[in-house]
């Protein structure tokens, strides 16, 4: 019995380390080897009971326009690859059911399909990097900084995302080319 418990104990420890280790490895591969994209965004500030305060990001590039439905249905798995618009922000370039032969693509799910009469089909999909975690005292300040920037139409907020083969990692959120973390630090050090 003790031998069995020892084997089970070893198995338990291996499994408990394997999951975070695999998560770290997969994300490090994307961070070091993935291609860099900038996603236009709008942040808000909720909190997670386990991971703390974060800024939720709502991206513009979460839908692709197709001339026909392609039989896409909600909940379906999809592979999306991205290009860049004239300002250098990411835009979805293609969507497929098979892994594309491209250096960077995202594995995601279709949320819903929009279609109005005499208009093309709009396939909405999930962008699985909608959270940017911040120190709890800074999350709401970060949101305020964003909304201040929004008043000035010349300023723009975007998420810096590394995309590999299927996975993506959000590495920073920028407001007018400045990291939101740095921006909050500056706000804290600037006298009222």
């Amino acid at each position: 019995m003790k031998k069995f418990l020892l084997i089970l104990f070893v198995f338990m420890c291996v499994a408990q380390w394997l999951v975070p280790a695999k998560m770290i490895y997969d994300n490090e591969v994307v961070v070091t080897e993935g291609l860099l994209y900038k996603f236009r965004t709008q942040p808000v500030d909720p909190s997670d009971p386990f991971r703390g305060k974060y800024v939720t990001l709502s991206f513009d590039a979460n839908a692709i326009v197709l001339p026909d439905s392609g039989d896409w249905v909600a909940g379906e798995e999809a592979f999306v690859s991205f290009g860049e618009d004239s300002l250098g922000f990411a835009t979805p370039a293609s969507i497929s059911r098979e892994e594309p032969d491209a250096p960077a693509f995202l594995k995601t799910t279709v949320n819903y399909v929009e279609n109005y009469s005499d208009s093309p089909y709009i396939i909405n999909f999930t962008l699985p990097f909608d959270r940017f975690y911040l120190e709890e005292s800074k999350a709401s300040q970060a949101e305020q900084a964003y909304w201040q920037a929004q008043r000035d139409s010349a300023q723009v907020a975007y998420g810096v995302v590394r995309i590999g083969k299927g996975q993506a990692v959000l590495t920073d959120v920028m407001i007018n080319d400045k990291s939101i973390v740095e921006l909050v630090k500056e706000l804290n050090t600037t006298p009222e």
């Binding site: 998560m23 961070v31 386990f50 990097f129 959270r131 940017f132 959000l170």
Partner: peptide, 16 residues
């Protein structure tokens, strides 16, 4: 165990 998974999610800003 929850902590170990959460901290990785937090560091890499993984989806919720």
């Amino acid at each position: 165990i929850a902590l170990s998974i959460a901290v990785v999610g937090q560091v890499y800003n993984l989806e919720g």
